[in-house]
Computed example of a mutant assay.
Amino acid sequence: MAKFLVLPGYLQSGKILAEKGSTFRKLMTKLNHQLDYIDPPVIIEKYQDLVFSLGDSEEECNAKWQKIVESNANRCWFQHSDTNGYVKFDESYNYLVKYLKENGPYDGIIGFSQGSGIMLTIMNNPDFNFKLCMSFSGFCFTVPADEKDDRININYQIEDPEEYNRRNIINKEYTQYYKNKPTTKLFNIFGDSDMVVPKVRSTFVNSIYPNVENFEFEGGHMMPNKKPFLRPLIERIQEVLESSD
């Protein structure tokens, strides 16, 4: 049995991610693996703080926001800011370190989207020795290599991985979180039609870590739920865990 900490994405709770990725969760728990889903620690206080609009009218926005709050989904690991980097990142990073030390040891971490973004930094921490980390729709904290380039255009208009890697670098404010280059096995899992975190952004991870294995599925920004894709993934998880014992 292996023990994994699971990190949800933006506007998600642990409960919501467990439900959305129910097939993966059931296949893992059937093999007696323990998945601990936790809630992102940063509370989003009002819908005006979101990075996108909830509707065309204030009434629509308020109604949707109320449902988000009632489901405990008004959470995140950080808020992006063009001027201040990733707001509340330090708070969330320290929260994770404390949680891992108090509730571990963990054999690995599983992150989805924003949860994967912070997972890809915490796996560098020398205090932890993970056997396997899994990034679903993940990304690194990058900025354009040329300051004159537009970050949004690069992320959503470039499809060639080599060109994308040439035109991006790790944000200098966060290089300390990627410098150790751990040999931990990293499964990099992404959808071929992801419009939130384009796959070229996820594959940038391959240029940062030395021990990455890629898994591409048909679909968008989601935890894949189809068994034909998940069963081979679960088999590889078993192989990695058994080889590290």
Rank of each mutant, 00 (worst) to 15 (best):
I152R: 14
Y178N: 10
Y156S: 14
G108S: 04
V240N: 00
F128Y: 07
H221A: 08
G111E: 02
I154H: 03
M123G: 01
M134V: 11
K98D: 15
Y209Q: 08
Y10V: 05
N62D: 11
K88M: 11
E45L: 13
L233N: 00
N180G: 08
D49M: 13
I189E: 00
I44R: 08
T83N: 10
Q157N: 14
V200D: 01
F141P: 01
P40W: 02
P41W: 08
K15H: 12
E213D: 11
Y174M: 12
M1G: 13
R151E: 14
K46P: 01
A73R: 11
D192R: 10
E58P: 07
I110Q: 02
I170R: 10
E147V: 05
K172P: 10
Q48K: 13
N168S: 09
Y99F: 15
Y99R: 10
F204W: 10
Y10D: 06
Q34R: 12
L96R: 08
F139I: 01
F187R: 00
S57V: 03
L27W: 01
V69K: 12
P8F: 03
N103H: 15
Q176K: 13
K131A: 11
P105H: 05
Y209T: 07
I189T: 07
M28D: 04
P232H: 07
E102A: 15
I237T: 06
S71I: 00
I110W: 01
N153S: 14
D49R: 14
N72H: 14
E59W: 03
S57H: 03
M195N: 12
I122C: 07
I122L: 12
L241Y: 00
S22W: 09
R151L: 15
Y156M: 09
R236K: 13
Q34W: 04
Q12P: 04
Q66C: 05
V197E: 04
E159M: 11
R166K: 15
P182M: 06
M195V: 12
D127Y: 01
V197C: 08
G117I: 04
L27C: 06
C133G: 09
P41E: 10
F215L: 05
N188W: 01
I109G: 04
